[in-house]
Write a protein that binds this DNA or RNA. Structure first.
Lengths: 184, 184, 184, 184
DNA sequence: CATGAATGAGCGTTCATTCAT
DNA sequence: AATGAATGAACGCTCATTCAT
């Protein structure tokens, strides 16, 4: 099933290579084909939709995201584990611009991606729950909400300089802490 | 000077009406004309570019943004003033989707918008500075950075339910507070 | 009949003023109206077509063209008269870019222009005939053909530098002389 | 390398066919597509700009222009060679209306066209120079000026009847001869 | 009369997607 | 399986002309 003909594999690789250099927000299959020296049809054969291609581009990052979560779960200090993970997650979002779209998509094209996403969400649920139980994170937030907040910070950083990253993530980290009433 | 002919005003209003229902991120003047039952030329007469139309859509909101800032400046408690303003600003961003683009644009089409923006930025600088001096906000943030963070929160809220609004803004408000070292 | 209301006369004059500064090959009535600070409708009222406006722009030049022809007719040396006229005609073509279109038009909008054109053609016929009889110009050319050759030279000059004018006109003048068989 | 697929060749040919019947001064790619029964995209694929299409329409003519020049260079009588060439050049301009625009263009789309033009210009420089040295052509004209005069004659002929051609070219040929002072 | 708002045909151009080769 | 030619909808924009005010 995974046995690709040699030339097919080569095409696929070239496509991915070009796609990685493209803006993940607007993958234009036509242009990618041209730059990869490959017919449009070939691109469509390998990746029936732009989203399928995006998933493929993101797969490796998804793997690292899973590892990040796993490592954080292993931390005995649940608060510290959560924070470390959070920072890593933002970094991965910044690295792979398509991550947001893939994570938020309701439907997944590839089974592997679906599985990866499921496991990631599961681990983050766990991670968050324990951090909340440990009193390190405010208890009224779901993992999905945190994910959206991460996307928000990603967005904010992209609007300005990369140098904003650290401060912005700090505000997120702090913002997630339980606290006295905000306006008290 | 601003006296528009009756039919012109009607067209203009129809255009704006349609535009308000459109995605402010991608105002397509042709489509707007069609939906407004108006010739393309009419749209271009009133709004030479999509950005001009966006500015118009946003103008009222900009005015309210100015008022928000003014009111907040008048608050004797600089921290409270800042927080109240921040919440209102996020709300205005949510109401008027184009606000982000208009505020971040380098060039403005209308003079009025330019003036409004200038005064808004000025007031927010003031507001932030005083909140920082009062110890209510971490001192290492510029007003521009705060604006970007607001855009981030707007983005996050739009990704999910409107119900997220309050919690998400809370995290921002708290995140901006000065604090012990984030991971300490 | 010619009694124009004061404001009408003012509009008319402003329109002509702007039109004189415009490219006579492509008079855009809309743009002229805007630059003249006048409604499009006003332009159309005064000049129902672009050609009508062009005729008006050209009228003075047509007058001078008539004078040129008259003066040349008065020259006792028919060859010299013709050549002088020819040079002047080219100059007028260069000055008033619309002259070509007006002279070559089959239909005239204004009666005055029609009359001017008729008298000009008549005089040039006369002028040419006498130059031909005097042996100064090859006898196998009609006045209409000479006019077209003038337009050709105008075109050639416009393709390059104004400095070409003298040499190019020279080649025309010489080219019109009777001569031994061209490939002799 | 130049092997076009059968259907592509057919499209291309249809496009060119329609284009040949169009006014080369204003090739409207949309209209051509419509008339050729072909999608707009197809036209753009073959000819990215109107000028590219014009060049293609002209390419064969450019080739013949080169041959004309070559043959003329081979003539032992430099004056006769020049005159023969001149007549042929005018004819080619009349045949291919776009020739003027292609020759006068600063930038060329196709390399082949650029090369053809360069060689043509070179040969005509040579041809003119020799004719001038031989006393057959007035020495104060550059090849570029002669080209412009040719365009002028083309223009003049197009204004009237095709029958004008011979006489008009005669006047050019004679006009280029060295001569006593034009008005003496 | 003057105005200028409105019209809408039509051009240039792009791009996702299909399908003949 | 791969190719890339073809498609055509749709957008941005311009401009000559009409017509309500």
């Amino acid at each position: 099933m995974n046995a690709l003909r040699a030339d097919a594999a080569r095409s696929r690789e070239r496509i991915l290579e070009v796609a990685r250099r493209s803006d993940p927000k607007s993958l234009r299959l036509n242009e990618i084909a041209r730059e990869a020296g490959v017919g449009v049809g070939t691109v469509y054969r390998h990746f029936p939709t732009a989203h399928a291609l995006l998933e493929e581009l993101t797969r490796e990052t998804l793997g690292r995201l899973g590892e990040v979560a796993a490592r954080a779960c292993a931390d005995t200090d649940s608060g510290r584990g959560f924070e470390t993970a959070l920072r890593a997650v933002v970094d991965l979002h910044l690295e792979a611009g398509g991550l947001q779209a893939v994570l938020l998509a309701d439907e997944d094209v590839g089974e592997e991606v679906a599985a990866l996403k499921a496991s990631i969400f599961e681990r983050f649920d766990e991670l968050l729950r324990r951090a909340q139980e440990g009193g390190a994170v405010r208890p009224d937030l779901s993992a999905a909400q945190v994910e959206r907040l991460v996307c928000g910070v990603e967005h904010a950083i992209r609007l300005g300089e990369p140098a904003d990253r650290d401060v912005f993530v700090d505000t997120l980290v702090i913002g997630l802490r339980p606290s006295a009433a905000p306006m008290g």
